[in-house]
């Protein structure tokens, strides 16, 4: 059972060490929006300010490091939120064992 936490470590390694090297090219939808001329319809001003806009951790000068730290933060936050949610959704296993 403990072995599965290696996968969480793997996720953190991906977020920390691969994210700075991710392609910065537009994704499929963005590219289509650029080519077909409707990219301007996207609202740049967010309704709510995000803590880590565009996967950049605020206050870190080095771009790669800022992305890596945002990635680690996001991966841990996602783990925590999902576990919390799953605990509320999931039924309790009988306390007999």
């Amino acid at each position: 059972m403990k072995g599965i936490y290696k996968i969480l470590i793997l996720a953190l390694i991906v977020a920390a060490f691969l994210s700075p090297f991710a392609s910065s090219s537009p994704d499929g939808l963005e590219k289509v929006a650029e080519d077909l001329g409707f990219i301007d319809k996207s609202n740049e001003s967010p309704i709510i300010k995000s803590p880590f806009p565009d996967y950049v951790f605020p206050g870190i000068k080095n771009e790669g490091a800022a992305t890596a730290v945002a990635g680690i933060a996001g991966t841990l936050i996602t783990f925590g939120v999902m576990v919390g949610l799953a605990k509320t959704v999931g039924k309790k296993t009988r306390r007999t064992q």
Binding site: I4, A11, A15, L18, A22, A86
Partner: peptide, 15 residues
Amino acid sequence: LGIMAAFIFAAQMIN
């Protein structure tokens, strides 16, 4: 569930 969500979050960062 937590580990899978965390893994997918991390993997989605890798364009």
